Deep mutational scan, measured.
Amino acid sequence: MATGGRRGAAAAPLLVAVAALLLGAAGHLYPGEVCPGMDIRNNLTRLHELENCSVIEGHLQILLMFKTRPEDFRDLSFPKLIMITDYLLLFRVYGLESLKDLFPNLTVIRGSRLFFNYALVIFEMVHLKELGLYNLMNITRGSVRIEKNNELCYLATIDWSRILDSVEDNYIVLNKDDNEECGDICPGTAKGKTNCPATVINGQFVERCWTHSHCQKVCPTICKSHGCTAEGLCCHSECLGNCSQPDDPTKCVACRNFYLDGRCVETCPPPYYHFQDWRCVNFSFCQDLHHKCKNSRRQGCHQYVIHNNKCIPECPSGYTMNSSNLLCTPCLGPCPKVCHLLEGEKTIDSVTSAQELRGCTVINGSLIINIRGGNNLAAELEANLGLIEEISGYLKIRRSYALVSLSFFRKLRLIRGETLEIGNYSFYALDNQNLRQLWDWSKHNLTITQGKLFFHYNPKLCLSEIHKMEEVSGTKGRQERNDIALKTNGDQASCENELLKFSYIRTSFDKI
């Protein structure tokens, strides 16, 4: 039985969820670079991206490699990797027998973001014989899940209580170790020597080791999670996991709180800001991140802002960003909400898709409305799209047979046209069989910064309504002859009103 693990408890099935942008060198404390989270699957090609990484700022997932063999891993080693800020997950990587050479110096898994409450997941690794993470000293947050690894031993010899604050939620089941077939031998045991430290858990006094050649490092209890030197002297209180010299914040392997210019500090002093819960960055760093993602459509890219001495992905609820200094300031009234469309555009074809934009005031991208039916549609669209004030790209209304009016965009005031449909149009209306009105132009103002209007096959939309939009939106004169079809717009509506004058002759039985 794995020490510190839980057996036999019912657990939810383990679901495996399925960018080499360097964020800056980590400095003297770390020998390499800070790398983003990685999802490495199918083959070993991307694994080489770990070569210079000291910190993975995010998670590391290595999974679904069915053609790899043990010899493929023999020359692979990433000794610079010290810390993973989120979680480490391995799933069905064939041929991998140990992690001792792959990650010989991995010391800390912070667990800032977890995989279903777990910071370390080893699942269905069919050839893994031992973990071998002999320098792993601290899992700051989260638990361990090690399950269905039929060859995995050296679990009962690990004292997880020396690595985690609590072992109650560890789930370590259905491994070879369960069948008591392992016969784990710690260093020196074969020669009758006791080389590794022994600890007591559940009444068992057991030597602690990761492999037959690597003991588990056990520091004096007084050192807590700070770690200790090879001689057993406690590291500085700002260290986490390990250090090369005692009581020196510049000799830590990793930091308990924050890293700044080669030393570990309790908090980031001005003019620095907390970033990702582990390091200090200056304003320029946060500003660069903001600008890199301002026009990016890459998933996970955030326009970072500053709030409460932190550089964070977005302002919290009730705050909006001051564009001059990136500071989050309290909103006066309802907060603006910028919604970034991942692929640059979004099609609204149902109430469900409209709900995804609920509360958005600025759309960074283009909207395509293609709704053919739905219950209580006008009210639903207004509830979900009615706060949109600005669209950076274009607005396209296409084959939306259920629409009679666009009044559900009740606050839309600006279409920038930074991206144009077919390279020309910022407003595009095609084949809307029941569209009769755009907006009530006596109450609604709309500016279209650039781009043209396109109207074709809107049989109940009168040309007068379209011409009014040209005047109000500032697009009059931009359109070419064929942009607004004269014969297919309003051709099934009563669009022309003329005053009919009647004269009559009164007659009676005795007068003409």
Rank of each mutant, 00 (worst) to 15 (best):
G262W: 02
Y94D: 08
R279S: 06
Y118R: 02
A119I: 00
S317A: 05
Y134N: 06
L327D: 14
E207Y: 09
N308D: 05
N257Y: 06
Q276F: 12
E207S: 06
D184R: 13
G232M: 05
T85W: 01
C196N: 04
Q204R: 09
L64W: 01
Q299W: 03
C219Q: 01
L133P: 01
Q303H: 09
N149I: 01
I139Y: 01
R263H: 00
D261P: 01
M65H: 08
S323E: 14
C153V: 01
K292W: 07
Q204A: 12
A119G: 05
S324W: 14
S323D: 04
C264M: 01
R41S: 15
S284G: 13
K310D: 14
C219S: 04
F103Q: 00
Y304L: 05
E181A: 13
H226T: 13
N149K: 00
Y304A: 03
R162H: 12
C182I: 05
C255I: 01
S143W: 09
L114N: 04
R141K: 08
V200M: 10
L47M: 09
G188R: 04
N105G: 10
F103P: 00
V173H: 15
N117I: 12
T107R: 02
P197A: 06
H236G: 07
T320D: 09
L102Y: 01
R110H: 04
I122Y: 00
M137S: 10
D86G: 04
S213M: 13
S237L: 06
M321P: 15
H302C: 05
P70K: 08
W210P: 02
A190T: 11
S284P: 03
A119N: 02
T221P: 02
V93F: 10
C228N: 04
P79E: 09
D169Q: 11
I146V: 12
T199D: 15
R297N: 06
C243A: 00
H48R: 06
M83E: 12
H226F: 15
T107W: 05
E97M: 03
G227R: 04
Y304W: 14
Y134A: 07
H290Y: 13
F91E: 02
T189Q: 08
N149A: 12
I185L: 09
G333W: 03
R69K: 02
G232S: 12
V108S: 10
W210Y: 14
F205A: 06
Y118M: 12
E57R: 03
N135I: 00
N309P: 02
I84E: 00
M137D: 03
T107D: 02
L29G: 14
H59Q: 12
L260M: 04
H307G: 02
D248V: 03
G111R: 00
R110K: 07
H236N: 06
L164P: 01
L233E: 10
L102T: 03
H307D: 15
L155W: 11
F258T: 02
A190P: 09
P330S: 09
N257E: 04
R141D: 15
H28N: 14
L327E: 13
C315L: 01
C215P: 14
N135K: 14
L128N: 01
L106K: 00
T157K: 07
L332Y: 05
A156V: 10
G333V: 03
L106Y: 00
E97G: 12
H290G: 07
I109R: 00
D178Q: 12
V121F: 02
N150W: 05
G333N: 06
K217M: 14
R297P: 09
L106N: 02
N150E: 07
V218R: 12
L120T: 02
A190V: 10
S244H: 11
E51K: 01
C293I: 06
A198T: 10
H302A: 10
C243Q: 00
H290M: 12
P330I: 05
T85N: 02
K67E: 15
I146T: 01
Y118F: 06
D75W: 05
V108W: 04
W160K: 02
A230Q: 15
N42G: 04
L64M: 11
Y87A: 01
N149P: 01
T267L: 04
C335K: 01
I62C: 01
G227P: 12
F66I: 15
T211M: 02
M83R: 01
H307M: 11
K176T: 15
G318P: 01
R41M: 12
L120C: 05
V93R: 00
V218N: 10
Y87C: 00
D261H: 15
N308C: 02
F285R: 02
C331E: 02
Y272L: 13
C196F: 12
Y273W: 05
R92E: 00
L155S: 12
Y171A: 12
D184Q: 02
G227T: 06
N325R: 08
R110P: 01
W278I: 06
C328M: 01
F285W: 10
G203M: 10
F285E: 01
L29R: 11
S244T: 04
Y30N: 12
E207R: 09
I56N: 00
G32W: 05
N117G: 13
T250N: 08
H307S: 05
N43H: 07
L120H: 01
C255Y: 01
L131K: 00
T107G: 02
I56L: 08
G111T: 00
R298P: 06
N242I: 07
S284K: 12
N202F: 11
S323P: 14
M125K: 00
Q204W: 02
E57Y: 07
C264H: 00
Y272R: 02
C286S: 01
R46T: 05
S166H: 06
Y134H: 01
N242D: 08
L63G: 12
V206Q: 15
K80V: 05
L96S: 02
K251V: 10
H236M: 03
G95L: 02
K176L: 04
N42L: 06
N117Y: 04
E57Q: 13
G58P: 00
L128I: 08
N309I: 02
D165T: 08
L136D: 01
C252I: 00
P269S: 03
P70W: 14
C280T: 00
K67R: 12
G192F: 15
C182W: 05
I201F: 14
S54A: 06
K129L: 04
L128F: 12
K129S: 09
E207L: 10
F66T: 05
H274G: 12
I163Q: 03
V305D: 02
K129H: 12
K224C: 05
N170C: 10
V34R: 08
L155F: 08
V93S: 01
F78Q: 02
G32D: 13
P313Q: 09
E180G: 07
C215Q: 01
R110I: 09
M83A: 03
G188H: 13
I139M: 05
E124P: 00
I139E: 01
G132D: 03
K67V: 14
C239A: 00
N52T: 11
V281W: 00
F73S: 03
C301S: 05
P246V: 05
P334F: 09
C239M: 00
A156Y: 15
P31M: 03
C234T: 02
P187A: 13
Q287F: 15
F275E: 01
I146G: 01
G300I: 12
N295G: 13
